[in-house]
Amino acid sequence: MITRRGFLKFAGVSFLSLASLGAYAVGIEPMLLTHVKRYQLTPPHWPAGLKLRVAVLSDIHACHPWMTPERIASLAAEANALKPDVIVMLGDYPAGTRLVTGWVDASEWAPALSGLKAPLGVLSILGNHDWWHDPFAQQAGAGPTVARKALESVGIAVLENDAVRLEKDGQGFWIAGLADQLALRPNKAKGRDKFKGLDDLDGTLAKVSDQAPIILLAHEPDIFPKVPWRVSLTLSGHTHGGQVRLFGYSPVVPSRFGNRFAYGHVVENDRNLIVSGGLGFSIAPVRFGMRPEILQIDLG
């Protein structure tokens, strides 16, 4: 039988353990040196002999004190150091939580990303927070958003239901980018009773004019069941790996598919999806078991 002293000792140790875990999840893991997560694969439709390295940054969520312009600039330098052929960004540049000590405006985070350099260029898409944080775009139900204009002002192309053809060593491939699937918030005055996406998968892929392989950028991974086998690889963010991930499971995932597309490399019916754990966070400034990460993807 446990004594009163024993119970108090147990309670004290438990409280300190929980407090330590909380301090680590809020104050330490979000600030750890960025992890480089590496993937190597040869997906369907990928030409023999085409070696391509893609660096991926997702869900930056700029804010003080965790994701300052200085830290964003250092992330750009880390991505460059991987010596990728092309760099892609998967959306959600502004803060995703109000629990911050200060806001980082687009006029600050975009210049911090301007240092990104790759031989075949830097391409980006937008995420839900890039739309949700823009009241004028929400009111109009259309862009261009502040985030898009900020990225383009520093020379970073933004793909919204568009595709571009690139070439390496005489072999072509396409990068297609979807507009956001949750872009417009519910607005009764506008007749919207639920989130409205602006994505057009069929229209985007229709812009691909030859049989070269396609890499699809889609902020939310929930589009993946609709992606045809013609697409060699889909890259997504949004979930942050659940922000808390233990033993390969995330208790909370912002996806209607739960853990199915929460994180990592998913193969279904010979179709390939890679979901980034991202760099920042939303709702709460917590990461546990899911360090900030940049992806290095070697294809071929």
Score class of each variant (00 low, 15 high):
Lys190Val: 00
Met67Ala: 11
Lys117Glu: 15
Met1Arg: 06
Ala77Asp: 09
His219Thr: 04
Phe7Pro: 03
Phe257Asn: 03
Gly22Trp: 03
Ala23Met: 02
Tyr249Asn: 03
Ala79Ser: 02
Ile60Asn: 03
Glu152Ala: 05
Leu159Glu: 06
Gly143Asn: 13
Gly277Ile: 06
His219Ala: 08
Ala118Thr: 11
Ser107Thr: 14
Ile72Pro: 06
Gln40Val: 08
Arg291Gly: 09
Lys194Arg: 14
Leu159Tyr: 08
His64Gln: 15
Ala163Leu: 04
Asp162Leu: 01
Gly300Ala: 14
Ala147Thr: 15
Gly143Thr: 14
Ser209Ala: 15
Glu108Thr: 01
Met31His: 05
Val54Ala: 10
Gly177Met: 00
Val86Ser: 01
Met89Cys: 12
Glu78Ile: 06
Lys188Val: 10
Gly197Ile: 10
Tyr24Glu: 02
Leu182Arg: 11
Glu78Trp: 01
Gln243Pro: 07
Pro213Lys: 04
Pro94Ser: 07
Lys37Asn: 10
Phe247Ala: 15
Val104Phe: 11
Phe136Arg: 13
Phe224Val: 10
Trp131Gln: 10
Val267Tyr: 01
Gly121His: 14
Pro144Leu: 11
Lys190Glu: 15
Leu151Asp: 07
Val86Ala: 03
Trp229Ser: 14
Gly280His: 11
Ala48Gln: 09
Thr239Lys: 04
Gly96Arg: 00
Asp59Pro: 09
Trp132Thr: 07
Ala73Glu: 12
Ser124Thr: 12
Pro43Ile: 14
Pro43Met: 13
